[in-house]
């Protein structure tokens, strides 16, 4: 599934959070410019519509719990 960013460019993937590694610290939310991540108690929810795959959250995660998986177009 190919997605379109706001600027019209395409993104081909999505953010996946490994629930077994996540320690709900919310570092990923603090660095998200697009407000795409939300912490609901012990559950980080990613809004695929808002996410631009900038990967700031991937880099910020102290537990390396976040990754981008490619999605077949």
């Amino acid at each position: 599934m190919l997605k379109r960013r706001k600027d019209g460019s395409e993104k081909n993937g999505r953010i996946v959070i490994d629930r077994y590694k996540c320690a709900y610290c919310a570092a990923c939310i603090a660095v998200c410019k697009y407000d795409a991540n939300l912490l609901i108690e012990t559950f980080v929810q990613v809004d695929d519509e808002k996410c631009t795959l900038c990967k700031a959250c991937v880099r910020a995660c102290p537990m390396r719990a976040i990754d981008v998986v490619e999605v077949d177009s």
Partner: peptide, 12 residues
């Protein structure tokens, strides 16, 4: 209040 990636200490 978005924190730039270079201004967030990632801690464990």
């Amino acid at each position: 209040t978005t924190v730039k990636i270079g201004e967030l200490e990632s801690c464990v």
